[in-house]
Amino acid sequence: MPSEISEENCFVALTTDLLDAKQIMDRVRSTTRDNFAGKPVKELEYTSYEPRALQSMLTICKAIVEKHSLTSIAMIHRLGIVPIAEESILIAVSSPHRQAAWKAGEEALEECKQKVEVWKKEEFGGEEGGVWRANRDGATGVRVEKGEEERPAQGPHGPILRPKVPGERGHGAVVRPNAL
């Protein structure tokens, strides 16, 4: 039987039971970001180029294992409609060293967000329709409806902060699979 106390958004407990990751994650679920630039997001929808995305995820994982001397790593991304407050990605790592594990987990997430061929559409509800998000600069993405000509002056996917390098088309450096 767990003994527990909680105050506002903090929950603490002691137990002799088996620890259940999902149960404790459920305790913090309501803190997930549910708006973009003040607009409430109703739900997210993810689509993917699946075989390409899996290759990129594997390449990232192998590089992270090597770099941080991990024992192992697992990465999974959810596709389709994901209600607000449900996870879209989970990364688990095991490592002999605690600090390396934290660092590796964060780095794996950043790499995933930059490189994996998964696209997020944010549904705001109402008449506005969904918006394809781009993981760069926190800029508003491309509205789904056709025929609207309103573009941000700085480019289709947000401000360009540095000149393009050859072969780059707005993603950052060109990804070479197996060359991380």
Partner: peptide, 10 residues
């Protein structure tokens, strides 16, 4: 062939 717009996982 695939057209890959800027990605937005996570």
């Amino acid at each position: 062939v695939a057209i890959i717009p800027p990605v937005s996982s996570g």
